[in-house]
Design a protein around this nucleic acid. Structure first.
Length: 275
DNA sequence: CGTATGCCCTGCGCGC
DNA sequence: TGCGCGCAGGGCATAC
């Protein structure tokens, strides 16, 4: 499940392969992953364009193209973008193939088909709605402890739901919300507004350090995540609570609990994160 | 408007 | 052994 560290790792792994390359041809094995515009117009507009860069915003990958176009990709649950030699056998669930001027292919595979592409012109029509209203990046100077404190105060929901909301801060998903809450000793079912100033400050620091460590480990490979060169992330071993239900907490030895919060499987230590 | 819920989809693990 | 069900969840549509 790619979250910010995994998407950032994909971005970095694609960096040597994409900028400066021309897209000679796009082959659609399954057109459902083309979200905007129609598959026909997508193919017509993207053919011959040159990839100028590869950027990230939250969990979105942004690829500015020549001619004022922008290709936007979202991997959702199971999407993978990999660069391979054309003779490489097609992996299952390969839906889109971009033939590049380097001779290599950028392939999009997606078992659960939740992810996909938007191709946007200079008028910005067709942008994913969520990208337009996305909150600040966790490492942007705008994401301050005071900002987090104030936003949490305004919410009436659980702290878990608030942090999963991409309008509040961009890029956190189920794994790193659980990890950041553990690192700051906050129970996931606490009311967002009940979080004290000191706790919010601690949470701010935890969010940044948890994400930073995960990026340094090139993300968490839980089941389906691999980077653009098909490598696993190494962060799984570092997880303190996520996917550790029934195992002892590394801090106090209490059994890690898993329960449903905000509609998501949620992991926490009942002793280190009291309600 | 803010919040909650269900849906999209496929593969896997579990229980019978 | 085999089948069917539930679960996994990011973002969006819909309902309240």
């Amino acid at each position: 499940m790619p979250e910010l560290p995994e998407v950032e790792t994909v971005r970095r792994s694609l960096l040597p392969h994409l900028p400066g390359r021309q897209i000679h041809e796009v082959i659609l094995h399954k057109s459902g992953q083309i979200r905007y515009p129609s598959p026909e117009r997508f193919l017509q507009q993207i053919g011959g364009a040159t990839i100028e860069a590869i950027d990230r915003r939250g969990k979105y990958l942004l690829l500015p193209l020549s001619g004022g176009l922008q290709l936007i990709a979202h991997l959702r649950m199971s999407g993978r973008l990999i660069v391979v030699e054309p003779q490489e056998p097609l992996a299952p669930h390969t839906h889109v193939i971009f033939r590049l001027s380097s001779g290599k292919e950028l392939r999009y595979q997606d078992q659960r088909t939740f992810g996909g592409f938007h191709l946007i012109g200079p008028d910005k029509v067709g942008m994913p709605a969520g990208l337009l209203t996305l909150g600040p990046e966790p490492f942007d100077p705008a994401f301050t402890p005071a900002y987090l404190r104030q936003k949490l105060q305004e919410r009436r929901t659980t702290i878990k739901a608030a942090l999963l909301d991409q309008h509040l801060v961009a890029g956190l998903g189920n794994i790193y919300v659980d990890e950041a809450l553990f690192a700051s000793g906050i129970h996931p079912e606490r009311r967002s507004g009940s979080v004290t100033e000191a706790e919010a400050d601690r949470l701010h620091a935890s969010i940044q350090s948890v994400l930073q460590k995960a990026i340094a480990n090139r993300g968490t490979t839980f089941s389906l995540y691999f980077d653009g060169e098909n490598r696993r992330g190494e962060h799984y071993e570092e997880l303190q609570v996520f996917d550790r239900a029934g195992q002892p907490c590394g801090t106090c030895g209490t059994e890690i609990i898993k329960r449903r919060v905000a509609g998501r499987g949620t992991h926490y230590c009942p002793r280190c994160q009291p309600l």
